Amino acid sequence: MILRIIRKFSSAHRLPNYQGDCANLHGHTWKAVFEIEGPIRSDGMVYDFKLLKPMLDSVLPDHKFLNDFFPNPTAENLCQAIFDKTAKMLAEKGLTLKTLEIWENEDCASVVRVP
Rank of each mutant, 00 (worst) to 15 (best):
K8M: 14
L97S: 03
F34G: 01
A75P: 01
N17E: 10
P39S: 05
M89W: 00
T29M: 01
D68C: 09
G94N: 01
K31T: 15
D21A: 13
A109E: 05
S42R: 09
P71F: 00
L3W: 15
R14M: 07
L100V: 01
V114K: 11
R4C: 14
E92S: 05
L51E: 03
H13Y: 07
F9W: 03
S11W: 09
L90V: 14
S10F: 08
S110N: 12
L3T: 15
R7P: 02
D62Q: 13
A81V: 06
V46S: 09
K50I: 08
A32G: 00
E35P: 09
E37A: 13
A81L: 03
A12G: 14
N72F: 06
L78Q: 07
K88L: 05
F83Q: 04
I6Q: 06
F49L: 13
C108G: 12
L97I: 05
N105K: 12
S10N: 12
A81P: 05
D48M: 08
L25N: 15
P115E: 06
L60W: 00
F83V: 09
H13S: 04
H63W: 13
A91C: 04
L78N: 02
K53L: 04
T96Q: 15
F83G: 06
G44C: 13
L51T: 01
Y18E: 05
H28G: 10
E76R: 00
S42D: 10
K50N: 08
S58M: 03
N24G: 13
V59A: 12
F65Q: 01
Y18I: 04
F65T: 01
D43E: 11
L66T: 15
P54M: 14
H26T: 06
N72D: 13
T86N: 13
V114P: 04
I36T: 06
A109T: 07
L100S: 00
N77Q: 12
A109L: 07
D84A: 13
I5P: 08
A12R: 13
G20Q: 05
P73A: 08
S11H: 11
A75I: 05
Y47V: 05
N72P: 07
S110A: 15
G27D: 06
R113F: 02
L3V: 15
I5E: 06
L15V: 03
P54G: 15
